[in-house]
Write a protein that binds this DNA or RNA. Structure first.
Length: 215
DNA sequence: TAGGCCATCTGGTCCT
DNA sequence: AGGACCAGATGGCCTA
């Protein structure tokens, strides 16, 4: 799914202006900011803070400042608060963009059919996990055949899950179908016709065959 | 229209 | 103090 750059700015602007607590003085803002953590500071919380030590605190603060520059400093305070929030938002946005870039890079090395099909975030992570596991198994086979060792013969149940048993969350992209060499769509992707990821081979020998097909 | 996915904002917490 | 990380909330877009 392609990102929609047009929608972001609108919500940004509205949310930013919405969150500036109109009608709340900066004394209150200061008190709330320095109050013990409360998940969602309700108006009641703010009133409570105002009713207790916050007033006295701000009086002290004003006395220390000389009590003359109140309007200016309040303005500066709220400006500073907004600017800090804005900076934090920018950082968070960048952080998420970096995360998405890494996810895209990961998608780039995962085989999908068709090539331009885009896995969702969760699908990418799950498939990468399973893909790595399947490659590991393939290498193990290669090692064993290289040195003339008897290939291990784990059960298909084991092979269906990197954890050697219950597929669990990570197994949701696995095809439990045991058709040797089949690249059947993974379970959770069956609802997305046209998009297939190479399911983890259900048997070790199939694994080698299957992966030599798409690697 | 409901549900899935996504981007963004936000406040809290931890770390440097 | 400031930055990184996280999880919850919100709203937009898309598809069945």
């Amino acid at each position: 799914m392609a990102p929609h750059p047009s929608r972001a700015p609108a919500s940004q602007v509205t949310r930013e202006t919405e969150q500036s607590f109109p009608g709340v003085s900066d004394d209150e803002v200061t008190c709330v900011a320095s109050a013990p953590p409360s998940p969602t500071p309700t108006p009641g919380d703010r009133a409570e803070a105002e009713g207790s030590g916050c007033r006295a605190g701000s009086r002290k603060l004003r006395a220390r400042r000389g009590g003359r520059s109140r309007p200016k400093s309040e303005l500066a305070l709220s400006k500073q608060r907004r600017s800090r929030r804005k900076k934090a938002n920018d950082r968070e946005r960048n952080r998420m963009h970096n995360l998405n870039s890494a996810l895209d890079a990961l998608r780039g090395v995962l085989p999908t059919f068709p090539d331009d099909a885009k896995l969702t975030k969760i699908e990418t992570l799950r498939f990468a996990h399973n893909y790595i596991w399947a490659l590991t198994q393939t290498l193990r086979i290669a090692d064993h055949s290289l040195y003339g060792l008897e290939p291990p013969t784990p059960s298909c149940e084991e092979l269906c899950s990197p954890d050697g048993g219950s597929p669990g969350d990570w197994g949701s992209l696995y095809s439990p179908v045991s058709q040797a060499g089949s690249l059947s769509p993974a379970a959770s992707l069956e609802e997305r016709p046209g998009l297939q990821v190479p399911a983890s081979p259900t048997c070790l020998h199939a694994s080698a065959l299957a992966f030599s097909d798409f690697l």
